[in-house]
């Protein structure tokens, strides 16, 4: 595997996570429990899809990849590298908020590290995205904190959502040994294990402040497979819906 192959694997996984999570966020448009939340998830959808587009464009311009729209919408399911976490349906609001909290802190940490990447095109983008994601984590932190203080049922639902989400969230950091070895040696990024440790440190403190118990890592099975192209039953229907308009006329100019 060349360095460019390894870079393409990493960028594809990051972009696919952002695209699929962005699509899930957009499914709250018109359905949010209050207007501000409807707007928040819609705005975060727009941000995430914009982040995915910027990464797909980097794949195209710097690594000889395909047209971003075609790459986003026309691949077969097994060629997507997103983690299982983002594939799951939105479920109830507790699941959506907890996923948002765990996922956005993971992204914040990843982009913070990528600001110092040896791969030059990533540095300005990571700087930019980190600033935008700050508002995602600000939103998530506020809701997690408040709902954990909002009575017995509310607290119980947040703890239960955390228990459900944690093994799925560990799938964000699924190792990709061959590519990672190259990327770490080349100083592109610190590697999944190190990112995961920084993430656990950060969410442990935030959970503790909200009174939530973070499940022990060695007691759960991380939801791996997505980075290798093995997906949940939820991805294919999502892809069909997401790409339906694009596939109806791939040559159309918008």
């Amino acid at each position: 595997m060349t360095k460019n192959d390894a870079l393409a694997r990493m960028l594809t996984a990051m972009a696919d996570d952002a695209l699929i999570q962005g699509h899930r966020n957009s499914e709250w448009t018109g359905l949010g429990p209050i207007m501000e939340e409807d707007i928040a998830f819609s705005s975060m959808a727009q941000d995430k899809i914009g982040h995915a587009w910027a990464l797909y464009r980097m794949l195209q311009e710097d690594l000889g990849g395909q047209d971003p729209d075609a790459f986003a919408f026309l691949r077969n399911e097994k060629d997507y590298k997103c983690c299982h976490f983002v594939e799951h349906p939105n479920g109830e609001y507790d699941f959506s908020l907890m996923r948002h909290f765990l996922f956005d802190h993971a992204e914040a940490i990843r982009y913070q590290q990528l600001r110092n990447s040896s791969f030059a095109p990533l540095r300005p983008l990571a700087e930019k995205l980190k600033g935008e994601i700050k508002y995602h984590t600000l939103h998530a932190n506020a809701w997690i904190t408040q709902l954990c203080r909002a009575g017995e049922e509310s607290y119980a639902r947040m703890q239960s959502a955390l228990n459900t989400c944690f093994p799925l969230a560990l799938g964000i950091f699924e190792p990709d040994e061959a590519a990672e070895a190259i990327l770490v040696a080349e100083g592109v990024y610190p590697g999944e294990k190190q990112l995961k440790e920084m993430w656990v440190d950060r969410i442990y403190n935030l959970c503790a402040a909200a009174g939530l118990n973070l499940p022990a890592e060695d007691g759960v099975t991380p939801a791996y497979g997505g980075r290798k192209g093995y997906h949940t039953e939820y991805l294919q229907p999502l892809l069909e819906e997401m790409g339906a308009v694009f596939r109806s006329d791939p040559q159309a100019i918008w």
């Binding site: 501000e36 939340e37 707007i39 928040a40 705005s43 935008e132 508002y135 600000l138 939103h139």
Partner: peptide
């Protein structure tokens, strides 16, 4: 701050 998101990406409410 009511919400860090508003009518456009650059605005909060």
């Amino acid at each position: 701050l009511r919400s860090p998101f508003g009518s456009t990406l650059c605005r909060a409410i």
